[in-house]
Write a protein that binds this DNA or RNA. Sequence first.
DNA 1: TTAGTAAGTTGCACTGTAGAACTAATCTGA
DNA 2: TCAGATTAGTTCTACAGTGCAACTTACTAA
Lengths: 241, 241
Amino acid sequence: MTKTAIPAPNYPRPLTTVDVVIFTALDEQLQVLLVKRPDGPKEPFPGHWALPGGFVDVDKDTSLETCALRKLKEKTGVDAPYLEQLGSWGSAERDPRGWSATHVYFALLPQAAVQLEKGANAAEVAWHPVIDHKVKPKLAFDHAEILAVAIERLRSKSEYSSLPAYLLPAEFTLPELQQAYEVVLGRPVDKSAFRTRVLSAEVVEETGDQRYTTNRPAALYRLKQPGALTFFPRTFSPRKD
Amino acid sequence: MTKTAIPAPNYPRPLTTVDVVIFTALDEQLQVLLVKRPDGPKEPFPGHWALPGGFVDVDKDTSLETCALRKLKEKTGVDAPYLEQLGSWGSAERDPRGWSATHVYFALLPQAAVQLEKGANAAEVAWHPVIDHKVKPKLAFDHAEILAVAIERLRSKSEYSSLPAYLLPAEFTLPELQQAYEVVLGRPVDKSAFRTRVLSAEVVEETGDQRYTTNRPAALYRLKQPGALTFFPRTFSPRKD
DNA sequence: TTAGTAAGTTGCACTGTAGAACTAATCTGA
DNA sequence: TCAGATTAGTTCTACAGTGCAACTTACTAA
């Protein structure tokens, strides 16, 4: 409490939680991080898979976003190169412990960066492939609905922005970036159109190095504005003036 | 409490509120509905203008969205033809009464439908023109930041969707719709490109009637899918197959 | 009947994409 | 050392959607 504090009215308060939808690209598939909920008679959805998250700690967390970053770091051990708010879900019924509202964030991670934390109070943590806007296991709470919205947001935003680049490490080749788009969008993308789009939008810049694999080497690029999204030109396109 | 209820952990809980950003077009300007906060020593931001909103009532409100609809109706007396979640803001500092999280919705209304409620517990309620992503008065809490995000969302979504149509009554002419876009986007829009866009995207359908004013009458249209958004074709355009 | 005004159409240049066919650089195995 | 396979990257053409300007149409008002 600060010294300017004003007493709050005494209404009953909903439970406040934060959940994070964490995406990565692995085995040429879009995958999402899930945790297994603990067993026990007083636990909601015991043994179900769920999105990582939990209660806001009004002492530890100064804001919803720092709370999301904390939960992300607890499960993956990394800071996400991209974190965005997805929305919030709240109702009397979604949690058997009472009226609850959850604030959902989604993050994109390069697979290489991640070392899943299985120690301590972390229950089982695993990547699950996203197939047809869903994962295989039945999820706890309303997390299946939340996940579907997250996937839809990721897909639609990838149609006109640099978002899928955050599934890759800081340096990548254009064919790798194209594949990230294809994994997210779930369809092939034309090579030449893709290259002109990305290069003319000035999304990336060359590092000067090349990646040598089994065939012709590919030029390496990095994002011009790491952490930010670049948008491709849209309709109602800008006038000349 | 339902009979399947599970006891909730005893953490201290943040305050939970819902705010609504209500837009309309009036006098060829984008305008937003604001309410004046009550005066009093135990009131935060006394006398400041603020977005309409307030605490979630865990007895009256079954979900965040019904709570938003309730607050909308309290201030305007109407059901909004369009309501969408904008996001949530939560931190230890944003409200002097303690750690609070607000869930923000935004709504679009035709001016004609609205009759501002000034009676009862409603304080002063008024439309304020949006100029340069801001309103004139200094707003309470972090509402200036929230409003800026709402305006930005409205603008960017209007670039590629039928969103501005919800600023108009159910029946409208194409020049009226074009003007709604111009008010929201803050720039002129080419007439012929606009018409081909709107008509080929099948956003609207003719009612068969015409609006007679002082000159050549204009054909009346209505939305083909009232309540839903239609999107214009975007980049990475669909393949032929 | 004519002038004025707003609704609606037409034609052309320009931009960005889809698609396919091409060239370039490397590795592998004979 | 050279041929074939493979992946990186380029070029060319057709086409769709837009920006812009000039045009036609339908009404009102004097």
